[in-house]
């Protein structure tokens, strides 16, 4: 158990809902669910979820901390917003799913081998380092995220697509080396620091 995980377990003993409210983006909406299940039914990837959103909400209320945070389910969310649009309580389900995944990651409880998790990490690193996503580098990193051999295989498989994009001038191969990024990197870092600060402050509010 990570130190942070151990610390939160002690802090929110027996009250996972409170923990979620404090630490998960839009977590204070979880209690508003009335178990109608429209979110679960509306999710295009629903059949792949072991625990659909509304069930996760019930599990949170039932203090099933480990099961929720180590679940792969919320990692499947592709942000289509179908659930959010249809939710009769306007619960920001998409945000909560990402929030849960993020929180699990922070605590070190997220399942390690999830492709979406890997993607997220690569994407975030790619983006936050320069302020602009470097698509070419991102694609390459994705191909190779499961090892060198698989990366080559994937690259060959995608070759026709890549060539097509080159021809259509939709991909700049030099971007890999000369990615510009945003002009004010300092400013970007300040924004990201501020966001972290807000998150921590929110968590602190619930510690009382």
């Amino acid at each position: 158990m990570s130190d942070m995980n151990a610390a939160t377990v002690t802090r929110y003993r027996d009250d996972f809902l409170k923990e979620v409210e404090a630490n998960v983006e839009e977590g204070d909406w979880v209690k508003m669910c009335m178990q109608c299940g429209v979110c679960s039914g509306s999710c295009p990837l629903g059949p792949h979820w072991e625990h659909p959103p509304q069930e996760l909400f019930m599990m949170i209320r039932a203090n099933k901390r480990e099961e929720v945070l180590s679940s792969a389910s919320m990692w499947y969310c592709t942000s289509c917003y179908n659930c959010l649009v249809r939710c009769p309580r306007e619960v920001p389900i998409t945000h909560i799913m990402h929030g849960l995944a993020h929180y699990a990651e922070r605590l070190g409880l997220a399942p390690k081998e999830l492709p979406t998790r890997k993607f997220s990490k690569i994407f975030w690193k790619n983006l936050s380092s320069s302020g602009h996503a470097n698509e070419t580098s991102l694609a390459l990193k994705l191909y190779f995220m499961n090892g060198f051999g698989e990366g080559i295989k994937k690259a060959i498989e995608m070759l026709p697509v890549g060539l097509g994009m080159l021809r259509a001038k939709r991909m700049n191969p030099f971007g890999l080396f000369a990615h510009k990024g945003c002009t004010d990197k300092k400013g970007l870092n300040a924004i990201l620091d501020k966001a972290r600060e807000i998150e921590l402050a929110k968590a602190a509010k619930y510690q009382a």
Binding site: V38, S40, P47, E55
Partner: peptide, 9 residues
């Protein structure tokens, strides 16, 4: 949809 009593799609 999903039958929420026990999660049945």
């Amino acid at each position: 949809g999903v039958d929420t009593e026990g999660y049945h799609r």
